[in-house]
Nucleic acid binder design. Structure first.
Lengths: 131, 131
DNA sequence: TATGACGCTCTCTTTTTGGTTAGTATAATT
DNA sequence: AATTATACTAACCAAAAAGAGAGCGTCATA
């Protein structure tokens, strides 16, 4: 039995190359540590490495370094090194980083507002499965 | 040299338990496949398994099944099985799923609008590193 | 009789990710 | 003279995630 061909999606841009890039960017940016760092940096305009590590629970040095490097590379944060000893490095969001924070705000709020619903859905699903 | 204590973050809710849950939910929901499935389902209100797999580029059966199950468990999609042969299963977003799609729209748009900037930042960063 | 469609599940292997530990430089502190 | 603080890097290893491939049950088509 042949299915009718799937209609072309009416999304504004359907350029596969752009799609792929957007997907990649979102995948990169929507990761757990990036979001948490984004949040703390949105709250405190300027932070040092260890301050961030204290504010983001359970982040390892390795992950924090990695995340900050990526964010720097993507133009989300600026990293300022003060040539003093012991070293002092400060991080702050760029305008791009701030705008991403604003965009994510919607998702963050959605998660807060719908936590209950999700938990309820999960409980119901699990109960249904057990039967 | 002792740093002054980091100020408490002025975020609306600072309940660590809620924070953890929100983080977990976002982590789950902000994953690549979930977002892509969300997008195609937001575009076509009702789709069958193979239709989705054709619309989401490079998704393996395994990942698609997994993603759809998770989304169903979280109450984002409804799965309707028609007891016919060959099997027919339809997926559609719930209201919760639609609202998540709306929330993500902002991030999606952000990514589209700022692709260039990100690519430019990366290029600049990489060039700076090479020196 | 063989093949394909559908919506999966199961197993095996590869890739990716993340944690842990050790090390670096140098000035100030104990 | 030893220790502490800072912001890392590098190496190694375990765990988790993802990809590849086979199989399944049944009906319709070739």
């Amino acid at each position: 039995m042949k299915q009718p061909p799937v209609p072309v999606k009416p999304w504004p841009e359907s350029d596969p190359a752009v799609d792929a890039l957007v997907t990649e960017v979102i995948g990169r940016v929507a990761d757990k540590w990036t979001m948490l760092v984004l949040e703390v940096l949105a709250d405190h305009s300027e932070l040092r490495f260890t301050q961030i590590s204290r504010l983001v629970p359970d982040v390892s040095q390795k992950m924090l370094t990695q995340t900050l490097r990526q964010m720097e590379r993507d133009g989300l944060v600026v990293r300022t090194v003060f040539p003093v000893v012991p070293p002092r490095v400060e991080y702050r969001l760029t305008d791009l980083g701030l705008s991403l924070g604003a965009a994510f705000c919607g998702v963050w709020r959605w998660a807060e507002e719908n936590l209950r619903r999700i938990e309820a859905a999960r409980a119901e699903f699990d109960a249904r499965q057990k039967r």
